[in-house]
Design a protein around this nucleic acid. Structure first.
Lengths: 340, 340
DNA sequence: GTGAAAGCGCTAACAG
DNA sequence: CTGTTAGCGCTTTCAC
């Protein structure tokens, strides 16, 4: 009847229609225990009759709670990250939160901007995986100061508080290298990632230590730090193939670089795994479909995402800062590229 | 100096500190043209001094604009979707919007719920790709009624207004089939998707028509509608291989099913592409890395995402509903699985 | 069990 | 150019 031309139906409209107060309507809609069932149902009916829909921005403002979680990640298009985001989204939604996605694109400056706008959005928490470029985390201080929990996964920083969900990169690298050695490789090489980034440091370290432990030398130029982009991978491959002592076992610090290398090696007269074995840190579905299938250290992306979100939500709701390091198991997937 | 213990610094604090009004502060911070440069800079300085950060939820409430875009997609973990979301995120952010991601997981009920909460969040617009189950789009009516633009891509519905970004599924399927025929296949089969879903209908239709055009028969059970999940694919493969007249050319309606089939065929004594050629609708990076490499109809996920976001933003800002169908080109990627 | 009133932080007429 | 005054729609004491 009161078909007002106003765009939005509010609790006031319901209140007016029912001849009660807005607070009663609010309480009813929130299922407050101190409202009679009768009133509640009258309110609910009128709400649907008028086509009322809660306005979360108003609600957020008055409650100082947005039920929004900011997610900062390097990018979306890798199995690991899309799985992680899936996991985050799933547990977030189950817990009543929505997620705002920001891709830093491995760009530190963008990461900083994103932190700012997420803060302005007053997200209740953020889960982040740092860019490769990131070496300082002061851009997260806004959150810390205002008691907004920050959960990190994979590429984390221990310089700020909050839950961290990680894998043991050192161990994964160590075991991968060990495996290559067990397969009979003696001239091992490692295509490492940017060494300012902790996870890549750890992977390089695991590699080095495994060699040391086995009494194997690290041949000159057999450990190459790089950005892991396509050019770097191609250059590294070319460099190694030109060496007098070319590697007979290669461990790459990322899935994509491993895939690319395995592809590049076809241009040479080299048998895999007989002449050259491969294993990569990080697994893509692709790894087991190609020929030869590519061995990998698998990181549980989905689980890590879920865990990060879970610990974040706990931190948000229980007001416990949720500090803690949660180590997720990696898995060595041995396939044809290294099995001999 | 005025180190009040209040958690949030507001424009009022700045106003008080400077002995001016809150509106002047607001205008300054928004770089209004009618504020003296001098005042602006005093305000800006005081803002950083006090550690002020804009509260977007308050701003959103008073402006009735959230600068949030809701994204509803079936899932994240396929090249196509992660690329699409990347594209959406990129142009959204460049245009000053943040995106809220919701995965329907191909579940119609979830899709409906998501539409509801996105509306409650008062997103300024939504970009959606319908779930396979979705046959009705009434859950989007909230948006339409309230003039919130809805852009759709790939799996779209013409039952509601708003920009649609699509590829010509019929044409892609037609050309893929045509290609198989040109390669010498005569007993063609198509693993189709759920036929309530338009894109899969169109693909099946393109397949049928290409056969007809070439005067080739559609052999019994050579067109199988399915859900494209792993079990369906396995069953279909088994069924086909058991046929007296087994297919010698297979066109799958999705990338993953194609990949899986190509993998399954190894269990049979069949040469690819000599005895059986393959091509899939949808391409994954994987497709060119496997052996034999898998031919595909490639959809430009990134572009489609960007386009959808762009048209949505236009619709939001120019108040033009942006109706229109934007056809993105597909590309036939002929690789070893079908080239003979 | 329900109402009145204040307020969350910002913006936007309307004055001057 | 700047200030005053109302809200935006909802929640939340504090009364009754």
């Amino acid at each position: 009847m009161s078909d007002k031309n106003k765009s939005e139906v509010t609790i006031n409209d319901i209140a007016r229609a029912l001849g009660i107060s807005a607070s009663t309507v609010s309480r009813s809609l929130n299922d407050s225990s101190k409202i009679s069932e009768k009133t509640k149902s009258r309110v609910r009916e009128m709400a649907v009759e008028l086509g009322y829909e809660l306005n979360l921005v108003a609600s957020s403002l008055s409650k100082s709670k947005t039920n929004l979680i900011g997610v900062i990640i390097p990018r979306l298009n890798s199995q690991f990250f899309s799985q992680a985001v899936s996991g985050i989204e799933e547990v977030a939604r189950q817990s009543g939160y929505q997620i705002i996605i920001c891709q830093s694109n491995e760009d530190f400056t963008k990461e900083c901007e994103m932190a700012k706008v997420l803060y302005s959005t007053r997200v209740d928490g953020v889960v982040a995986c740092l860019s490769k470029e990131t070496t300082t985390v002061e851009h997260f201080n806004v959150f810390i100061q205002k008691k907004v929990p920050v959960a990190m996964f994979d590429r984390v920083s221990y310089a700020i508080e909050g839950p961290k969900v990680v894998v043991d990169n050192y161990e994964g690298a160590y075991r991968a290298t060990e495996h290559l050695i067990a397969s009979g490789c003696t001239r091992l090489a490692h295509l490492a990632g940017p060494q300012n980034c902790k996870v890549f440091q750890e992977r390089a370290e695991g590699f080095r230590d495994a060699l040391k432990k086995a009494g194997l030398p690290l041949l000159p130029r057999h450990l190459l730090a790089s950005d892991l982009n396509e050019k770097d991978v191609r250059d590294s491959m070319a460099l190694w193939m030109g060496l007098k002592e070319a590697p007979d076992g290669i461990f790459t610090a990322s899935a994509t670089s491993g895939l690319l290398m395995l592809n590049l090696v076809r241009n040479y007269n080299v048998r895999v795994p007989e002449d050259m074995a491969f294993i990569s840190f990080g697994n893509e579905p692709c790894n087991e479909l190609i020929t030869p299938s590519l061995s990998a250290v698998d990181m549980p992306g989905l689980d890590m995402g879920k865990a990060a979100a879970k610990h974040l939500v706990d931190a948000i709701e229980k007001k416990q800062n949720g500090d803690g390091i949660f180590l997720k198991p990696i898995q060595l997937l041995i396939r044809n590229s290294s099995f001999r």
